[in-house]
Nucleic acid binder design. Sequence first.
DNA 1: AATTATACTTAACAGAAGTGGAGAAAGTCA
DNA 2: TGACTTTCTCCACTTCTGTTAAGTATAATT
Lengths: 207, 207
Amino acid sequence: MAKRVTDKQKSVLKFIADYVEGNGYAPAIRDVAEAFDCSVKGAYDHVVALEKKGLIERAKNRSRSILLATKGKQVLQIEEPQRVPILGRIAAGVLSYADHHVEDFVSLPLESMAEDGAQLFALRIQGDSMVGAGIKENDIAIFREQQDANTGDIVAAIVEDEATVKFFFRQSGRIVLKAANPLYPDMYFSNELRVLGKLKSLIRLYN
Amino acid sequence: MAKRVTDKQKSVLKFIADYVEGNGYAPAIRDVAEAFDCSVKGAYDHVVALEKKGLIERAKNRSRSILLATKGKQVLQIEEPQRVPILGRIAAGVLSYADHHVEDFVSLPLESMAEDGAQLFALRIQGDSMVGAGIKENDIAIFREQQDANTGDIVAAIVEDEATVKFFFRQSGRIVLKAANPLYPDMYFSNELRVLGKLKSLIRLYN
DNA sequence: AATTATACTTAACAGAAGTGGAGAAAGTCA
DNA sequence: TGACTTTCTCCACTTCTGTTAAGTATAATT
């Protein structure tokens, strides 16, 4: 059971997706049959096969109840707008996606922002330490979760039990965090720095 | 025809929306009847009424083909992530949402960004004339379409057949556009300035 | 070579689902 | 008050749909 997905099955899957897209509701099995100019049972077999392979979900004896399962969307490469949590206080440097730490959600405004399944999180910028890089207080910064970084990256890191956003540099064996504001001194670390992620995008609201 | 929407009709509408939300497909009329513990025809009459009032759309003789119309969503205050077009070249100062002027789309990352049906559009920032305000080249700026502005607003306006983004000021009867960069001189206008919209939010991508 | 899965056919049936007529009681509106 | 509209009932009917039975032929696996 559940071998590979055949070309025919893929095209049936695509028909279903297109039908839903176009009509707002799923096709009846007879609609599939008509589209592929085959018998009702032929279409039925395809639908059952797709169901068995987990590409679609369906309710028994219910008309037009086909849903594209996550797996089916993957096959067709349909991407949904990803929702990224805006984290509030980050206690003791642990990234937690638990409800009580999530302030709100942003959905990614551009499809190009979604990455190969990388974990993303967002922080609200506090203070003016990065104004020189065009990052202002209350901006929403979206990070890709990662424990390391390259020189020149803008990162979120834990400094004194607080999340902070700074430029990341490696200088002669040490790590340096630099603000983009001359009023803030550079901070030096000898490797025990807890990096949370790397800045991927920024969202600002006016008014 | 099409008088006000009754409480009962509202609750039927809500049931339909909830059903779709929960199941992924629309209810059959008999599902409505069951939910409201009334006859099939009773439910049918409600559905027909909702259709006549433009709150739902439906296909004739098709099972489970109910769709919530835009008007129906308004009644239930269901907000969908709004998609905003990123406009490319703006020819001769006319805002056109025609396909060939649309580079891409951004969907609004936060629900709070959607406004009372205001028309929004986006531009990609060119040049560094607004760096002082934390607006950098290639940032995506989202504007609310409006022909006027208040002193201090950041606006998109047409200057010499090009869209430009600047601070907007009124000074002794004239309009002044100021850059947020001392390298750019102020521009003065005696009212024939074509304002396209006011900056509402900003999106930046790193890498 | 034997088995299993794919991709169909024709035919039939039962249950699901939409539609319409003919009321009736209650509420709304002018 | 009279004319609608809303909200329902009961019943009948048609159409739509999912499902099953019983095969056939081809391709892919084991």
